[in-house]
Simulated scan of single mutants.
Amino acid sequence: MTTQHEVNQQQYQDKSEAYLNSIVHAQGIEFEKIREVLQQQSFKRVLDLGCGGGHVTYHIAPDVEQVIAYDLTAEMVNLVLQQASQRNLNNVIGQQGPAEKLPFDDQSICCVVSRYSAHHWQNVPQAMSEIFRVLKPKGSVIFIDILGNQQPVLDTFLQSIEIIRDPSHVRDYSLAEWMTFAERAGFKIDQIEKQNLKLNFQSWVERMQTPAEAVATLRYLQQKASDVVKNYYQIQPDGSFQSEVMYLVLTKPE
């Protein structure tokens, strides 16, 4: 029986370089926001949860005493450690594992940052519980992720193209779902912002090595979509589109 974690590992085991070199992943207005939170709170030990190509790690390492690059895929962790060494970021360590079972002591992490990772997790409520456990009191967790939608026609379209492009996709959660996850885990909601992410269709599918028949299905769905869907996602003639992104800051109470 193949687990969701195994599907995820199979999908990403040969794509670390693609994510390292991805402009979408390397750039974003959220990096400065993350650094402001870290600097204001003087956080020392930070977990980059679902580190992928390591862009969060590279941005925040100069501001903290230690960054833990953590990912389900060992190749991603190894790449980040190599890049950190080349960039003289000597305070970066790496560890492989799932978000749902963090190998860290209770109250041992000052801050957790997770960017474009949670939509791959097998069990977000369980991961949130683990994050809450390892965070120190007054510690923060910062999530950046693609948002699902409460309107069925918009949400069905988004989830469909995501999983056709990448079979390891689980779900882009709506803001209401995120609020429920946060509150049930015990977090206080500090900040919620939305931003738009423009995605070039060709690089989007190339990064995931999406097979030609799946690419054809994606284009078919885009072309057959209603005007409501096309306008909301700003679907262009070449297939490029935009998604809504959540920037969420939560705090663990004292």
Results as ranks from 00 to 15, higher is better:
residue 61 A to S: 12
residue 131 I to V: 15
residue 125 P to T: 06
residue 97 G to N: 07
residue 189 I to V: 15
residue 162 E to V: 01
residue 161 I to V: 11
residue 145 D to T: 11
residue 4 Q to C: 01
residue 76 M to L: 07
residue 30 E to M: 05
residue 238 D to C: 09
residue 212 A to E: 09
residue 166 D to W: 05
residue 34 I to H: 03
residue 68 I to R: 12
residue 24 V to L: 13
residue 177 E to Y: 06
residue 85 S to V: 04
residue 3 T to D: 06
residue 55 H to R: 07
residue 160 S to P: 01
residue 18 A to P: 02
residue 234 Q to G: 07
residue 146 I to M: 10
residue 187 F to C: 05
residue 197 L to C: 14
residue 94 G to Q: 07
residue 13 Q to H: 12
residue 67 V to M: 08
residue 13 Q to M: 07
residue 21 N to P: 01
residue 140 S to M: 15
residue 41 Q to V: 01
residue 237 P to V: 02
residue 86 Q to P: 00
residue 203 S to M: 06
residue 164 I to A: 10
residue 169 H to W: 10
residue 129 S to R: 13
residue 148 G to S: 09
residue 78 N to M: 03
residue 23 I to G: 03
residue 183 E to G: 13
residue 237 P to K: 08
residue 231 N to K: 10
residue 127 A to C: 01
residue 185 A to Y: 05
residue 225 A to V: 00
residue 23 I to A: 13
residue 166 D to S: 11
residue 122 Q to V: 08
residue 74 A to L: 14
residue 27 Q to R: 14
residue 206 E to Q: 13
residue 156 T to L: 11
residue 214 A to H: 13
residue 13 Q to D: 03
residue 51 C to F: 09
residue 87 R to H: 04
residue 148 G to P: 03
residue 75 E to A: 14
residue 88 N to H: 13
residue 128 M to F: 14
residue 5 H to E: 15
residue 117 S to I: 00
residue 61 A to P: 02
residue 57 T to C: 04
residue 131 I to Q: 10
residue 89 L to E: 02
residue 119 H to Y: 05
residue 176 A to P: 00
residue 116 Y to Q: 10
residue 214 A to T: 02
residue 28 G to I: 05
residue 152 P to H: 07
residue 140 S to T: 15
